[in-house]
Nucleic acid binder design. Sequence first.
DNA 1: AAAACCTTCAACCGCTTCATA
DNA 2: CTATGAAGCGGTTGAAGGTTT
Length: 300
Amino acid sequence: MGRPPCCNESGVKKGPWTPEEDEKLMDYISKHGRGTWRTLPKHAGLNRCGKSCRLRWENYLRPDIKRGKFTEEEEQLIINLHSVIGNKWAKIATHLPGRTDNEIKNYWNTNLRKKLLQMGIDPETHKPRTDFNHLLNLSQLLGLSNLGTSTSPWTNPLGLQADVTQIAKLQLLQNMLQLFNGTSLVNIGNPYLLGNQILNPLDTFLNGTNILPDKDSILRGLEYANPVENQAENLLPALVASGPRSSTFNQMDFNYNAARMSTQSPSTTFEAWEKFLIDDDESSGSYWKEILDLTYPLSW
DNA sequence: AAAACCTTCAACCGCTTCATA
DNA sequence: CTATGAAGCGGTTGAAGGTTT
């Protein structure tokens, strides 16, 4: 449509808001309500466009805005929701009272994205990263760190920290699973799957059992999370494995549940993964070595 | 101490969606 | 059904503050 942006109006102030402007806006809204944003600035005595006023109010001045760091629960919820509905920040924000879409978007881009990438998870698809360079870097990193662990798990020639090693292991394993499976489902901590039996990834791998959530249970979960709008239709790119629910390599799908994590110590997604990794018998190294030997018949 | 670099987040821009005439 | 205008949304930018060199 040909309508010019409202902010093209000449002489309208842009940029950071001053305390005086904030005061005027809050004052006006508290007395008269929001009304229409387009006419609000004029009535409130603000030299701003309506859009700017709306943004300032919605993202900063609204009295019910929660300030401060995101909690682990919020963090986990954002990841889970993002895995289902993608970059629908406004939708995600409706599940986090007091948080704005802008705030969630910023937090995602500056923190959560990086965390997932570090864990070898593609933040767009919520599946393991499969780009070759990434795999190569991981295998090199892992190889170097293994050199160090042969003498002491905490020191190595490059000074790599143990957590780097653990992350590398996790990433490599996930990538290998993806290569094996092609339909690998990595869903770390979905609180909507409370009803499903969830296995420790290691147990899953060793026992050869696998329980994946079906589409109905996901939909029920969403309905629970948002009873007003049960509209999860076609919004399930990452949660529903495209392959058969019970195949040889689907056994290795990591369906690791947030509820399990939250009822046990450690309590967070990332800590739980860390625990899983550290609990691995480092001294024998057999678990990882076997996997690596199976998939990479090269010497480390 | 200072410059360079990095990170964060408020705010903007332009597009889409929704409501209504 | 169509056109129009307002609101909403998501991507992007850039200033400010923090950190590293």
